[in-house]
Amino acid sequence: MPVNEGFVPKIQVFEPHRASLPPLIPYLKEFWTRRAFASELARFGDKAEYLDSRLGKVWLVLNPLLLGMVYYLVVTIIRPGGSVSGMTRLDHLLIGLFTFYFAQNCVTAGALSITSGGRLILNQAFPRALLPFSSAIQAFQQFLPTIPVYIFVLLAGKWAYPTTIVPGWTWNFLWIPFILICTGLTGFGLALVFATLNVYFRDTTKLLTYITRIWMYLSPVLWLPSSLRGNMKILLWINPLGPVLNATSRVWVSGESLTQPVVLGCILWAVASIVIGGYFFISRERDFAIRL
């Protein structure tokens, strides 16, 4: 009973290579046919992570909620008052934070996926991009429980402060899958870059801790996109997560549609991250087994 019949060619030839891409079509077909490996690795990784915890998967909800409360306190103490109501600011902060952490978890877990998957890489042949892809799936699985948390906070806010503006049902919510796909692709693309760098320089993940912190302060999470003036507005475009976080705030908090530049910004960053990250990673992945 052959394995992966129809995808991996029956005759395989292994020859010397330079830092160039392997034949992409067989690579992508193999990646696609083994996607269950990435999703199950993510599912079991999640299961193992919370197996010994008394609260188990409740932490998936508690973590972002507590984090949101901490940042809300920080933001309201630093910048009390202002033209935006407290509840609107909390809604923006929570959904921005959850979306940012989805992308951040893709990047940080993905960056470690190759160096921590040494035994797999040394002993099995498979498209190495499956490991950061698995981290991206796991980050998405950890993001999903934050959606009901956000909706709960939104409704609780409306109940406690009836003047709070809560968007009713609108077709603009159909932009949400688009935003999440762009966030996931951007995070996965950046994970490919950092996973490769981490193979060559093992202190990359230490540096990443500071990069992600600065990245969050430069992203429209703790501040509203509308608060930027003049040249500072460029922050929304040069930041890979700028357009998706801007879009997140517009759709989730205000129920507004997306403007054409925001849609284009989301697509461009997602495509650029995947293309650049993919090239950087796939052209070097045949060296990983030697460098681990």
Binding site: Q12, F14, E15, P16, H17, I121, L122, N123, Q124, A125, R286, D287, A289, I290
Partner: peptide, 8 residues
């Protein structure tokens, strides 16, 4: 490892 396609 080379026969398996793990090392080039």
């Amino acid at each position: 490892r080379c026969i398996a396609g793990i090392l080039s």
